[in-house]
Design a protein around this nucleic acid. Structure first.
Length: 271
DNA sequence: CCCGGAACCTGAAGGC
DNA sequence: TGCCTTCAGGTTCCGG
């Protein structure tokens, strides 16, 4: 599942290859992935545009075009971007869109589940408004985190998954952060004590930073644009834990459902 | 406003 | 072996 560290890795790998290139054409193999706009109009506005920059906000990838418009990509759960070129015999399986560049490169938007989204916008205000501070940014302060938690009764895991509260945390890193902080994911957000809040705050920043450091996690269907894989999942303690054994206490890792999300946690280590 | 659950999708995995 | 059901989960939408 692409979360902040995975999207950051995609951006870092993709940017040097595509910045400065011009989009000669886009093949939409699944038109409905274009949101908020008629696909024909979308193609008109994207074709011929130079790629000025590639950035990330939360789990959104933002391609800045010469016209000033931004091409927003969201990989959702099973999306990935693969670099190839026009000599490829055929696109990868589940390719839903192909961005053709003027130097012969192709960027394939691959997505088995068809949840992925492309959107062309004049500015990023619309998505910025949906996102809270980035976990590693200066405006994500202890005070902000603590104040936010105190106002909510939802399970703490559900709350830290809200993009409007913290941008970029998804299911895997939420589980890892709660494990590192020793907190039961079902606890009401406002029930956390000061020391627990502090531990969770630090844990969120640490698991996200580690995720980026290891090039993201490669579980289920996530691949880097160059075909390599990240290793962040090798450092996970509970998320997608195959052995079902806690790396700290040796006890069983259990899978429960919190707010409809599969949740891995260690009942002995997390209270 | 807040909460929880469903919908969007389809491949993979598990049950009978 | 093969059909059928269930599960996966980022985001948005909807009902209470």
């Amino acid at each position: 599942m692409p979360e902040l560290p995975e999207v950051e890795t995609v951006k870092n790998q993709l940017a040097p290859h595509i910045t400065g290139r011009t989009i000669t054409n886009v093949s939409l193999l699944w038109e409905r992935m274009v949101k908020g706009q008629d696909p024909t109009e979308f193609l008109t506005l994207v074709t011929g545009q130079k790629i000025m920059d590639v950035t990330r906000h939360g789990k959104y990838l933002i391609v800045h075009l010469g016209s000033g418009n931004k091409l927003i990509l969201h990989l959702k759960m099973t999306g990935s971007l693969i670099l190839g070129n026009k000599t490829d015999a055929e696109p990868p399986q589940y390719a839903r869109a192909i961005i053709h560049l003027d130097d012969g490169q192709n960027v394939y938007f691959r997505d088995p589940r068809k949840f992925g989204v492309m959107k062309l916008v004049a500015d990023t205000k619309e998505i910025d408004a949906k996102l809270g501070p980035e976990p590693l940014a200066e405006d994500f302060t202890m005070q902000y985190f603590s104040d936010g938690l105190g106002k909510r009764t939802a399970p703490v895991k559900a709350f830290i998954l809200e993009q409007k509260f913290i941008a970029g945390v998804g299911n895997m890193y939420a589980d890892e952060a709660l494990f590192a902080a020793g907190i039961d994911p079902r606890r009401p957000a406002n029930s956390l004590k000061k020391t627990e809040i502090k531990r969770l705050y630090t844990a969120i920043r640490e698991v996200i930073a580690a995720g980026i450091k290891y090039g993201g996690a490669s579980v289920v269907t996530y691949y880097h644009p160059d075909g390599s894989v990240g290793t962040a999942h090798e450092h996970f303690n509970v998320a997608h834990n195959q052995k079902k054994i806690c790396t700290v206490c040796g006890g069983p890792v259990e899978r429960i459902v919190v707010r409809g999300r599969g949740t891995y946690y260690c009942p002995r280590c997390q209270k």
